[in-house]
Design a protein around this nucleic acid. Sequence first.
DNA 1: CTAATTTCTTATCTTAAGATAACGTTTTCA
DNA 2: TGAAAACGTTATCTTAAGATAAGAAATTAG
Lengths: 200, 200
Amino acid sequence: MDALSNQQLNQFREHAAAYVEFNEAEWIVCIQHLSILKLKKKEHFIEPGQVCKTLGFVLSGSVRYYHIIDGKDITNYFSFENDYVSSYKSFLTGEPSISYIQALEPTTILTVSKKNWDAMLNNPMLAYKIERFGRLLAEYYLICYEDRVTAFITQTPEERYLKLLESGKDIIRRMPQHYIANFLGITPVSLSRIRKRILV
Amino acid sequence: MDALSNQQLNQFREHAAAYVEFNEAEWIVCIQHLSILKLKKKEHFIEPGQVCKTLGFVLSGSVRYYHIIDGKDITNYFSFENDYVSSYKSFLTGEPSISYIQALEPTTILTVSKKNWDAMLNNPMLAYKIERFGRLLAEYYLICYEDRVTAFITQTPEERYLKLLESGKDIIRRMPQHYIANFLGITPVSLSRIRKRILV
DNA sequence: CTAATTTCTTATCTTAAGATAACGTTTTCA
DNA sequence: TGAAAACGTTATCTTAAGATAAGAAATTAG
């Protein structure tokens, strides 16, 4: 765990401002609960069986969420800089994580431990704004996942890929194709065929 | 809109207690923001294009969420008694809903309008607890949707159906099979084949 | 109570995805 | 820099799902 720089804190503060703005007094208390986590390429943020005790905000780099199913590596999700990262279900419920989260490049994450998160929720000075922050964050990801479920229900793999080409620029540009295939719910071979089909 | 009975309010209060407990003074103010909506069988809670201005709690009955895609009816989700109901994305963002929500039987829903929801969030007496309630509610559905996405990514349709047999008793027992098929991301014909396969 | 509608299954045919392997290319990293 | 690993495409074969239609069974509604 390194010290936090002002630059790092400001990067987070700016993004958090979309949800809640802290005054100076609050901010000073708030940042006492934060740490920096640096992950090397391929290092893990969380592994299955561990309880995820960290909620993170990616300052730089990227991570992927994946499962090992029958010995096969299946990528589920990505977070890039200025996204949040956690094995949410595990973080929120205290159950062990069922997935891996792995840095895909050297990645710097601003973190709050579950203990500090709960401390902020119980600190009268911060409680209201942290509740609000947590609500808006959860609502944001709720909507993301709702959209993704709807895509699985109503669209073909090809349609999902075409949509990703429009609205998933970061994923398309920065992720290898076999990760994207998993993310879309298909095999890499199948995605390769879809791409060929589309070009015709 | 009917008057609210004590029985109805208590039913909700008991379930809300899992998230937050209101004292008497708070509760009295809180319930001033609530209404009752009765839907007849096949009546709609929301239709595409409308902004969803209501968050509901199903007191009795059931609803299904569905889309019309290329003229075909695709069921996406269900809510039963003691579940919440809303076109969440629309309710939260103010964008028009993209799906229908329809009562499957005579259904009674305890509702809060977006206006009253926002009023409670801005009422100092209630703000903190409503933020907290909203956070825990959003977290609950975030986890539901996260699990569902993971199932699409990591499981076959057959595996998803087997899992539903275990943990989706209400859906299995109360919903017609073609709705369940959509919910699992497959066609009714395909689900019928899966069921035949499993029995062998 | 009967007619209409809905629901589920079955069959056929078509289409696309999964499994696997091979191969060339690119990237990694020791 | 050179060997190993990772990546993307292609081919083949298998399997399962989609589209469609028909018919039986169950449910609903007038």
